[in-house]
Design a protein around this nucleic acid. Structure first.
Lengths: 116, 116
DNA sequence: TAAGATACCTGGCGACACAAGGCATACACC
DNA sequence: GGTGTATGCCTTGTGTCGCCAGGTATCTTA
């Protein structure tokens, strides 16, 4: 588990959009998906996750809709807007460039790495 | 140039320690080194850089010493402490794990990538 | 009845990147 | 002498946002 919460700040937005693009639709499910897909390394706390989803909705990258689950619980389902898809694309490129730069300075092998 | 300043938040500390470990000693020189070594992608603003150096010093990872340059200007030279070296090692590992996890979710090739 | 998983929300706090401003010296050029 | 550029350090104020801690409610299982 990553302890440093500052790391998450820059990456949370693209992560959320990506997970939603991959078909996860509501908060609880999104949180579980992030945990699982990162091998337990990443965790979006509830106090982080829900405000972040609200921000993305307010900025027009997501649209929300309340539905009732088969078990009867209320769920808020998010889906991406066209602007969200464009934004995700830009964020992915930004993250790729950023992580490549940091890896370069830290001397860590990165995407497009050399081969033995 | 990376626009999103939130990205820098989690990575600035290891970057600074790394650059200092590589032999850069004072603020202005460190800032230039980060810019150059990242191919111009990364920029630590002065209002970010100097407080960060102060934090690292206060936390015992750096030790500072004022010296006069050959041209006569005052410079504050930093060098790593033993605790700083240990901290850098931990931060490098943390960054590596974090970026690997994010790359995995975003579907970006990462360190240890496959080969053509 | 009680616990645990599911599912959402918010207020207050602390950390920190940045903008914008300040101060001082060296050097080149006119 | 004046002006511009590079060097070199600093701080205050502002805004953002992750997290903690707390709240509410439903469903399942023991």
């Amino acid at each position: 588990m990553i302890a440093n919460s500052d790391l998450l700040r820059g990456a949370l937005e693209p992560i959320l959009l990506e997970v939603i693009a991959a078909g996860k639709t509501y908060g609880y499910e999104i949180a579980k998906a992030i945990q699982e897909q990162s091998g337990g390394e990443l965790l979006a706390q509830e106090g982080t996750l829900y405000p972040a989803l609200h921000r993305l909705e307010k900025r027009g990258y997501l649209r929300a809709e309340w539905k009732r689950s088969p078990e009867g619980r209320q769920r808020k389902h998010y889906r991406m807007t066209a602007a969200g898809a464009r934004h995700l694309k830009a964020l992915r490129a930004e993250w790729a460039a950023f992580s490549r730069s940091v890896n370069q300075i830290l001397g860590i092998a990165h995407a497009g790495c050399a081969v033995a």
